[in-house]
Amino acid sequence: MAEVLLHAEDLGKTYGAVAKTVALAGVSFDLHGGEFASIIGQSGSGKSTLLNLIGLLDTPTTGRVVLNGRDTASANRKQRAALRNDFIGFVFQFHYLLPEFSVLENVLMPGRIAGVSATDLRPRAEEVLALLGLEGLESKGANDLSGGQKQRVAIARALMNRPALVLADEPTGNLDTANTAAVYQLFRELNRELGTAFMIVTHDRSVAQQTDRILEIQDGMLLQDVRNSFVETGPAAEMELAAQPAPSV
């Protein structure tokens, strides 16, 4: 198995100083390079909170995230920003494309943030756009695309800096069935072809079952961590729990 890409240890997040709300508690797992995993749970279960913590968008109240061997607990905002730019690509439910920029410019943005010139980035951007079937749309404004196209541009942007990990939070929440199927097929192809690890947050069990590994979150805790061969072949009762025992809920 590939090396550990992400190590989450006893991750917890509590909101509020007086009236405390525990959004996440004691979540630990390792994600290896090239894994294709999903986080599943009901609305409000804490799955997005977990994604934000491992994506270094938020800081945990307890525990730590080790990304590519680097303990991020001591990293400041600037270092966290640099780590996000280097290692992580984000795809959200909403595309978050910059309406002021064209498709190509949106895709170039992570590279531009890293300080690389647009000229040097151009071949990579074209490669990624081609991979996502977006040829010919380079000069279009971000607002001139269909919903499915916008989300594909957002995925292209997430892949621009060759991230080791793509974090996707309900990436097809705003798409129709056909586009939803196409996006997950695309994720799977990208995972196989580029070796990029994916961690997809979804509330849809059928979507999760297409991934190799399911981390199920319930009431802020990791209920189970299941490998895919069992998901695909056997009933839920046969699911093999990962090394970590599920906490009692």
Partner: peptide, 16 residues
């Protein structure tokens, strides 16, 4: 705000 937020999510630094 939304644009700045997503730029920061992609790794743009505070000063930038």
């Amino acid at each position: 705000t939304r644009q700045i937020g997503i730029l920061k999510a992609m790794g743009m630094k505070d000063r930038q």
